[in-house]
Design a protein around this nucleic acid. Structure first.
Length: 259
DNA sequence: ATGGCCGTGTTACACGGA
């Protein structure tokens, strides 16, 4: 089973590039972030015609997550528990029925800038809710993957120019600590279990020729329960997509599971 | 040397992103 997470930065603007990628890359499951669309306007038939089941959790203008799957889905749920008043669409869960059932959680973690401030407070509160949900999922003792745009640069080696991110919400010590608190529950960060060292990025800003200078950051992550980690065959970043026509500012991160 | 963008909603910019 091949699963990818991909922040597409707007479904309307990305429908062509996303379709071309799906046709050639052929993922079984895709977790999308920043669809920037309400559910009614998401072009679901377009992807159903390609053989995908489509589940969306959108809102007007911003945010929004979705799951595309060639395999049957069960127990789909929308939204992150822990704050009923939170109206931002940043979380979706489903169980993928492959050779093994795999619980997938697609997430779009708040950016949090400027920090300090209310947006940063929201980010940290959201991460605490994430930790609570991650803890619940571990108790199931089943293969599960928490994947998406975490908006966290875990370590300095995950940025080409770490000094320029020093005061940014993506790299502040509190953000990194909150990310580690989730990991330390007992999750495996899939990419780092396969590839070590600097120079691996999943986002390059549209500004200042960041892609041409390879001035990137690694902020799209996949966290695995022990049962999922045992099924991992490989994990990689498809950086090449950033150089294509009309790209998202993020690229897909992939995992292959023996499931 | 320095600054450089993009998408959405609404219709000339505001806002968010990272």
């Amino acid at each position: 089973m091949k699963i990818a997470t991909f922040n597409i930065n707007g479904i309307k603007a990305r429908i062509s590039a996303l379709s071309d990628w799906l046709d050639t890359a052929q993922p079984d499951v895709v977790l999308l972030q920043e669809i920037k669309s309400v559910d009614e306007n998401f072009p679901r038939e377009h992807f159903e015609d390609k053989g995908y089941i489509v589940e969306t959790h959108g809102q007007k203008g911003f945010n929004g997550v979705a799951v595309l799957s060639k395999l049957p889905l069960e127990d789909v749920s929308h939204g992150l528990s822990g704050d009923e008043s939170d109206e931002q669409a940043r979380w979706i869960e489903a169980t993928v029925m492959g050779d093994r059932a795999v619980r997938v959680c697609g997430l779009y973690l708040p950016n949090g800038n400027p920090a300090p401030g209310p947006k940063y407070d929201y980010k940290l509160a959201w991460m605490e809710r994430l930790r609570t949900r991650a803890k619940e999922i571990l108790t199931l003792e089943e293969p599960a993957i928490l994947a998406g745009d975490y908006n966290v640069i875990p370590q300095d080696e995950d940025a080409a120019t770490p000094e320029s991110w020093r005061k940014d919400a993506l790299a502040l010590p509190e953000s990194r600590a909150a990310f580690r608190r989730v990991l330390n529950l007992g999750y495996t960060e899939a990419f780092r279990a396969r590839r070590l060292g600097p120079g691996h990025y999943s986002f390059w800003d549209y500004q200042a020729g960041a892609w041409n200078k390879n001035d990137g950051i690694r902020i799209d992550h996949m966290l695995l329960t022990p049962q999922a980690a045992d099924l991992m065959q490989d994990c990689w970043i498809e950086a090449e997509l950033r150089g294509r026509e009309k790209p998202s500012d993020h690229v897909p991160v992939w995992i292959e599971l023996d499931a």
